[in-house]
Amino acid sequence: APAKYPHPRYVGPELGAFDPRSVHDFNVTGGARALQLEECGHGVSAIVRRVYVGGLSCAIKVPRTANDYTLIQREFQLMRSLADCKHIVHVLGWRRGIVMEYMPHSLLVFLNLILSFPGRRQLSRGQRVWIIRALLLALGALHEKRYVHRDVKAENILVAVSRCPSCMPVGTYCEECRVQSKLTDFADAVEIPQHCTWHPAGDLVGTRPYTAPEIEARLPFSYAADLWSVGVLAVELRNMSLPTEPKDVAIAQGYLPLRPDGATGGPVKLVTVERPKNRETAPGLRKLIDACLQIDWRMRPTVAEALELIDNDFAE
């Protein structure tokens, strides 16, 4: 039997009952009145709620405290600069927080839904490719702006599913349903300094086991840190479960991230990633996982190289 998937960390609108006590009136841009509905996400610095305004269902991300206001405003400016990328959540405006398009589920919640249906335990090959490819295109747009996301994970990928004709009447999902996914939550994104290809060492940011080894060790990092997270997510989509918990790796084995100047650092805690063993795993996906999960970040692929590998899923 497949391993039990982690319980969702928040409840989406289609999974929880409506609570009338959470309804508030407030003004959105243009003077339109809105109903603030259920909470659909929260983090250290912000809370995300669904709102209904002018016939449109959207989401608003508001800072928890006054000290978080600058952080959320910086995220808003970055997301506005990425408006041309259709694989990143679209920003609609600002009203005491980021007003953005609403998508019903995170990828984490969607995977739990898949496992809850009798006889359905996997995403289809096409659905995995759509999700990973959309993520890579979103990261490509972000990296062009010289930013590293640092917190790529299933919770920060939002999905909307177009049900096929057979699933529409019964409200389920199958391999024929179309999955649209978009990257969100850029609060931890940092800019790579001009004339550099890496960012100086900083505080530990991210979520295990998605965090790249060099970030885990508080060493300098590059865009390749996001590619490590892509590799972990690809394993998660194939196995329908997260890899095992991190464990210590001995220095004698030499599994240490390298600094840009070639010096080694560590020891660090690395995630033990079990590669998919199922023969149905496409060769392109296996190659992508192996390439992204290189301990030495200089050996990981760029977004363009990773896209070439995932596009080979249907060519091979």
Rank of each mutant, 00 (worst) to 15 (best):
K153M: 12
L204R: 15
R275G: 07
R133K: 07
F314G: 13
A32V: 15
L92Y: 05
R150S: 07
M103H: 09
A66S: 12
F186K: 04
D68P: 06
F117M: 11
Q127V: 01
L237P: 08
T302G: 02
I98G: 01
P13H: 09
P267H: 02
G202W: 00
E175Q: 12
W130F: 10
I251D: 11
A224R: 03
P63Q: 02
G171Y: 04
V62K: 10
P267M: 01
V230L: 09
E308G: 14
P104R: 03
L256N: 06
P283A: 12
C167Y: 05
F26V: 11
L92M: 06
C164R: 00
D261Q: 00
R146S: 09
H87F: 10
L285M: 14
D84R: 15
V48K: 01
D84M: 15
L15Q: 14
R96T: 10
L92S: 00
H143S: 06
E316H: 14
L115Q: 12
R120G: 01
E155T: 09
V273W: 00
L158F: 14
I72C: 12
R125A: 04
R9G: 13
P200A: 08
G41Y: 02
T272P: 09
Y210H: 11
R218C: 10
P8S: 03
P104Y: 08
G231C: 00
R208W: 09
G54C: 07
T302V: 00
S81T: 11
M79Y: 01
Q180W: 11
T302W: 02
E14Y: 15
Q180G: 05
A160T: 07
R163C: 06
L307C: 01
L15A: 13
P283D: 07
H87E: 08
N67T: 14
Q73F: 13
